[in-house]
Amino acid sequence: MTKKPLGGYAPRQHQHQPVALYPPYRTSVKRSPQAAPLSFPTTISEESGPVFGHSLIGPLDADLLHNFGPQDVSAIGPRIVVHGRVQDQFGRPVAGALIEVWQANAGGRYRHAREGYVAPLDPNFGGCGRMITDENGCYEFRTVQPGPYPWPNGPNDWRPAHIHFSIFGHGFAQRLITQMYFEGDPLIPLCPIVRTIHDKAAVDRLIAPLDMSRTLPMDARAYRFDVTLRGRRQTIFENRMEGL
């Protein structure tokens, strides 16, 4: 498909990324590296990555409404479709990308041993799903809209409603974990985790708009969340740095 040989991955642009140390997010204080990281051009170790075939994906993996509870019983809460496209920074679709998602239930409660929120578990909701992007880099899954939840940080911090995303591109250099937020949520600008990203446009790109064109009438609303991964340069020459 590609005509010219691909070079290494373009260096990460840190101005679009969160800072490691952000004291209002208290756990970052003792978990943030302080020394400068080591840079070098990507090698086969970063340009290769695990490949996951469509055979990995079970029939209900992308249907969080139904992949945990008894057969034909839906999870409780507002039904939504989340869809979007995974592309690289040069606009090329990333086909075959494994996406894993996890989230709280509609009440804001996670199914996890260390979760202490008083909101109840939904017996029909596990909270995980996965899918692989198609040849155009597109993906889609069904779930319930998660609720906001309080968390132990400041005396009264609430996470905006969000879905966690883990994405594998083609090279390990593209590995990314992020969170999708929902358009219109007033908690977004208040959240210390969101505020670890100092570039407002970068935050806005994590906010999924309502997408009426993909809404399923009388069934589910739709939200669109596009993801951009790092990309490889088109030519090997740009990446050749002598003496490294």
Partner: peptide, 8 residues
């Protein structure tokens, strides 16, 4: 297109 921002 800037790379999507990471979150914890």
């Amino acid at each position: 297109h800037p790379e999507s921002a990471s979150q914890t």
